[in-house]
Simulated scan of single mutants.
Amino acid sequence: MNFDDYYWHDSTLKSINIDRSNPGHNDSIVLEIEWYGTGISKLIFQDVYKAKFDLNFGIIAQESILDAYSTKEDEELYLLATKWTGVFPVHELTCYVINTNSTVGQLKICAKGFTIDDKN
């Protein structure tokens, strides 16, 4: 399924796990999402090259998601391309953006792809 086709609004971000146990070979980010009305699954971003989190804490509320989208035209991809010219093909990356509702935060993950693990 396409990243943009998931029902993001009012789903809940439960946890974030960054795996750099094998740097350069397995750089992944796992988000645990409780989908609005359908249950919990893990969203696994694979071959992550950059992540930028602007998150706020201290609010006593679940971190609900306002919206999310994927793009090939994000400033983070441009900055990555200018910083690491010739190191890897930036055109293979997508920037996944998740905007939160409860604390007005944002996650940007530049990766080659993602999968969904519904096995809990």
Rank of each mutant, 00 (worst) to 15 (best):
Q46I: 13
D47Q: 09
E75D: 11
S15I: 14
E75H: 05
L31R: 04
K42T: 04
T100P: 03
N120Y: 14
F3L: 06
A81V: 04
D117W: 02
D10Q: 05
T100G: 12
N17D: 15
S70A: 13
W35G: 11
S41I: 03
I60C: 01
W84R: 14
I29E: 07
L55M: 12
D5R: 05
E32P: 02
N22A: 14
D67F: 06
I109M: 08
T115F: 07
D5P: 00
I40R: 12
F45G: 11
W35Q: 06
I65R: 10
T100C: 07
D67M: 05
L31Y: 12
T85R: 04
F114A: 07
K112R: 14
S64A: 14
N99W: 03
G58Y: 01
S64I: 12
T12W: 09
K112T: 12
D54W: 01
K42W: 02
G39Q: 11
A51N: 13
S15A: 15
Y96M: 02
C95Y: 03
Y78C: 08
W8S: 01
C110G: 00
G105V: 04
T38K: 13
F53R: 02
Y96H: 02
D117S: 13
N101Q: 15
Y49E: 11
V97Q: 02
D5L: 08
G113Y: 00
N56A: 10
E92N: 14
G58V: 08
K119V: 14
D118R: 04
S15Q: 12
I16H: 04
H25W: 09
L43F: 06
Y49V: 05
T94L: 00
L107A: 06
G86F: 02
S41K: 03
D118Q: 04
L93Q: 09
G86V: 02
S11W: 00
I29Y: 00
I109P: 02
V90C: 07
L80W: 04
A68W: 03
A51L: 03
T85H: 01
